[in-house]
Design a protein around this nucleic acid. Structure first.
Lengths: 234, 234
DNA sequence: TGTATACTATTTGTCGACAAGAATTTTTGG
DNA sequence: CCAAAAATTCTTGTCGACAAATAGTATACA
């Protein structure tokens, strides 16, 4: 008697395939499992997910739309590179979105939003406590994304989430070593920001968000500068 | 001798089909040739463009990514509706992008950018002179898009262009009659804005852009209010 | 007559295959 | 031995067809 392929879960629901591939590839790109510049092979993915190339390609088109992969016509497609030369444009956009989303959250949030926001803040504090740099990045992003949601402007949340994703990718490059940690100060700043949102103090929300964002940008730049020096030493 | 199908241009270059369908559908949606809510039939499009459904679907996925069409899983796909209820979020985003892109243009523009910007302004002035409302909309969008390009921040230009597209769609709804015209004042405001950009006066660029944007928003809201009254009269 | 069920039809999601371009290797000519 | 041309391999873009899901229609039953 020969072995019969008793595939555990060969049945996929119609239409779920694209989303599964999209989500997984997206995570792998943002977590740097797939490094920037590495090629993406449709056939390989088709084999890996046990499906035809058609849904794979649809997922890739979506990712290309978000700028996570680059597609050269009739040629290879690869994970988008990180543009370190124009980093300041990223920081400009990030700071502005921090400010405007926090401001709008102070203006339009509902009681239920605060519960969600505070839950994320608890997780962020725990990550800082545990000195888990990677967890800090993701919980910080989740917290600010929740604040943006409370502002209820899809145009801003859309751009902001995109920026947070891109930031997650950049920081992964530098936090590989796990030996860095964001200062406790950020936890307190978050608490202050949440407080002014709850108080609906719009001007103060803008001011604190600006300071907070600039602190984070400064922190990142300091990190990059240190790495640059290490690179030069080699 | 029977008629032979001497199709004029049956040959399409490999890979050009998707872009062609995407561009054309995009224009038709933004120009309201395809009205919001109207269904999109893949098979019909495939026949119309004389190609298989695969490239059609790829174009549709891209359009969905930009929010121009809505896709219900396993069901119909249709042109995205315009969200009149949350119009203020659109205006918020539009005003902010007007400001920040103008500001960055004052900061980072190069001589060549000004030439392009001024050319667009000439076209806008001509449209106002000709009292061609539709041309005013598109030339105004082109002008501000060019200003944004001079600011050299892809995150902002991306969101801004998206907003301008959405605005183009909204205004088409109200400018069908061709009997409206933007005031000459906007031409002068544009001239002032271009002047401060050329002078690299960042603060003044922000101030003028804010005033200009709020004027435009006010104009649009006035237009909508009038239409609402007409609707109610029916 | 109204409602629930079965059937049909339309539309979408997926598949395997083929063909066009580009990259790579092999062959040919100097 | 090297360079240009030819052949091959490999990947992508497109196609026609099939199958699943849903909508619409007809039928059966109370």
């Amino acid at each position: 008697m020969t072995d019969i392929d008793t595939s555990p879960i060969p049945e996929r629901k119609r239409g779920s395939g694209v989303k599964m591939v999209y989500d997984l590839l997206r995570d792998e790109i943002l977590d740097l499992v797939l490094l920037p510049g590495s090629p993406i092979d449709e056939v390989q993915l088709a084999e890996r997910f046990k499906m035809s190339r058609t849904p794979i390609r649809e997922a890739l088109v979506r990712l290309a739309g978000e700028g996570l992969i680059d597609t050269l016509p009739n040629r290879s497609t690869m994970v988008a590179n990180i543009d370190f030369l124009n980093m300041h444009t990223f920081f400009d956009a990030l700071v502005l979105m921090y400010r405007v989303t926090t401001k709008l959250a102070a203006q339009y949030h509902r009681p239920k939003d605060l519960k969600v926001i505070r839950a994320h803040q608890v997780e962020f504090a725990a990550a800082v406590q545990a000195q888990d740099a990677l967890a800090m990045i993701s919980t910080n992003a989740a917290l600010h994304s929740a604040i943006a949601e409370a502002g209820r402007n899809t145009y801003f949340t859309g751009l902001f989430n995109r920026l947070l994703d891109e930031g997650r990718r950049m920081l992964r490059l530098y936090y590989q070593s796990y030996d860095d940690r964001l200062p406790q100060r950020f936890v307190e700043e978050h608490d202050d920001i949440i407080a002014v949102i709850a108080n609906r103090d719009i001007e103060e929300a803008d001011r604190l968000a600006k300071l907070h964002a600039e602190q984070i940008v400064y922190q990142i730049q300091k990190l990059f500068a240190r790495e640059d020096r290490l690179d030069m030493a080699l």
